[in-house]
Each structure stands twice: as C-alpha cells, then as structure tokens.
C-alpha cells in the first residue's frame, strides 16, 4: 500500500512539472502577443496604414512596407507553389522507394534546415550579383520562394497521401492512365490540403527578414515599386530598421509596435485561417 502511495505521489509531481512546462509556453505566447497588442494598437489608424513614412521615418505610416511585403510574398508563392506541388506529386504518386527518392528527401530535409541568413547570402550571390537582378522584388521573391519550398512540398505530400488508395484503384480500373488518375481524381481530392499548406508557406514568407535583407529590402523609399526589378520596403525589415538603426529609436517606439502588430496580425491571421480550414477538412473527411 505504501509503495502505491509513493508511486501516485511521483506521478503527481511529474505531471505537475509537465503541466508547468505547457503553461510556460502558453504564457510566453500570451505575454509576447499581449505586449505588442497593448502597445501597438494605439499606433494603428488609417494614416498609419495608407501613408508612407515621413520626417526621417519618425512619423507617418508604413504603406510602402505593406505593399512591399505583399509583392514579395506573392512572388514567393508564385515560385514555390508549382515547384512544391510538382515535387510532392512525384514523391507521392510516381516515386518508388530507392536511391533517387532517398536523395530527393535528403535534399528537401536539408533545404528546410538551411538557416535563413544563408538563404540571404545565396540570394545575394546568385540572383543579385550573378544573374544581375540587383536588390529587387524578383531577387527577394526567388530567395523566399526557395525558402518556403520545403513547407509546400511537405504539406502537399501529406495531402496527397491522405487521398484514399481506393480512388486511385477505381480510376485505374476504369482504364484511366496514371496521369489522368492524378489530374482528375487525386489532385482535386487533395486540393484543400495543398492550399492549406500553401497558406502556411505564405505566412512564413511574409515574416522572414534575414533572406530579404541583402536581396530586396530597402531601408527607406516612398516610391511604390513599378517593376519586379525595384527595391521595396518590407514589414519585418522595417521593424528591424526602426528598432535598431534609426536615430530616434525611443521616439519611434510606437511605430515599431504598430508595425509589429500589423505583421503579426497578417501572419497569425493567415495561420489561423489555415488551421481552421484544416480542422474543417479533417472533420469532413470520411475516408
């Protein structure tokens, strides 16, 4: 009886520690979001969202940065989506386990692990310098696109694998070719999952700073981009710049919080949408 009591006690203590860890994580998220929300919402008004920065970035808004982030993100997903879905189709529908597939998977895993600042160096070396695109939307989009490629591949492959094998069998048994089966049956069934993954990729691309520092981001410009070869401001870089490089760091604190809040609202909003869609799909999936 004694030993049973002791065992229960140990369990209680262990669970206490485990619960505490989880609480700490939740608190950390809540505190971070709370601080930025409380300090940031005051800065946000119509002018802030629609006007360019003024007076050496101590006043005014962040409109060029919003536009820049929008273009960079759009460019990144335009590059990553087709490549990512195609890779996933190969891995899920065509590939048979072997050396080639193993190599591709190692490639994807390692690409996912490349530090974002190294992506920045790569983008600088290849797109900005070697291909001569300069610091531009194009260079930044390509860099970000390759950065989120593994995210898109992973999500798409998972979505394709969740399509029941019976659909493929049914199509093949009706005289469908492999490609007809993929195109007409598997892809439509996997599409919601693929889109969810792509939304997550967009969120990731929007929040990254280091990859665009040397490839796309401008310190300050009021001019909106007119071509893909233009430099742009971007929300994450703008936060960094205001918080570290300005001459009036303390006076612009509210602008920093405001920009951070806009960025967070965008990124977390995107993620929430993805999470909700995914939960819906999982509930609806009867197969």
């Amino acid at each position: 009886m004694e030993s049973r009591k002791k065992r229960k006690l140990i369990e209680g203590m262990a669970f206490g520690v485990i619960r505490l860890s989880t609480v700490i994580i939740c608190l950390a998220l809540a505190i971070m979001l709370g601080f930025i929300l409380v300090n940031g919402y005051k800065a946000i008004n119509w002018t802030f969202l629609t006007e360019p920065p003024m007076d050496a970035m101590t006043k005014g808004g962040i409109f060029p940065a919003i536009v820049g982030t929008f273009y960079l993100t759009l460019g990144a997903i335009t590059i990553a989506f087709p490549l990512g879905v195609a890779s996933a189709i190969y891995l899920s529908e065509y590939a048979r386990e072997g050396k080639m597939v193993r190599l591709i998977r190692i490639g994807i895993n390692n690409l996912a692990g490349v530090p974002s600042v190294v992506f920045g160096l790569f983008g600088l070396g290849l797109f900005v310098v070697f291909l001569g695109f300069g610091s531009s939307i194009l260079s930044g989009s390509l860099t970000l696109g390759f950065l989120i490629l593994p995210v898109i591949i992973g999500a798409s492959e998972e979505a394709l694998k969740a399509v029941p094998q019976t659909y493929r069998e049914a199509s093949l048994a009706l005289g469908g070719t492999r490609w007809q089966t993929i195109y007409r049956v598997v892809l439509p069934a996997a599409l919601p999952g693929i889109l969810t993954g792509s939304i997550l990729g967009i969120g990731r691309a929007a929040g990254e700073t280091a990859p665009i520092m040397f490839t796309a981001a401008a310190f300050y410009t009021t001019k909106l981009p007119s071509s893909v070869f233009d430099e742009v401001m971007a929300l994450p870089y703008h936060i960094y710049v205001l918080a570290t490089a300005g001459t009036h760091i303390d006076e612009t604190r509210h602008l920093q919080y405001g920009t951070a809040l806009v960025l967070i609202a965008f990124v977390l909003g995107i993620n929430l949408v993805a999470i909700i869609i995914r939960t819906r799909i999982r509930r609806k999936q009867t197969y």
């Binding site: 029941p164 019976t166 659909y167 069998e169 049914a170 199509s171 048994a173 009706l174 005289g175 469908g176 070719t177 007809q180 007409r184 049956v185 439509p188 069934a189």
Partner: peptide, 23 residues
C-alpha cells in the same frame, strides 16, 4: 473491376459514371 468497399469518386453521380468514358 468492382471493389470490396464502394469507392465512388467525390464527384456528382453523373460525373462519376462518366469518368471512365471521359478518360
């Protein structure tokens, strides 16, 4: 071939039957 578990595609009834013809 007809399988153990009914496996219609998530399409309309018409498109399901027409699938084999279309491909």
């Amino acid at each position: 071939m007809v399988f153990q578990k009914p496996n219609p595609f998530p399409k309309t009834i018409f498109n399901d039957v027409a699938y084999g013809l279309r491909v």
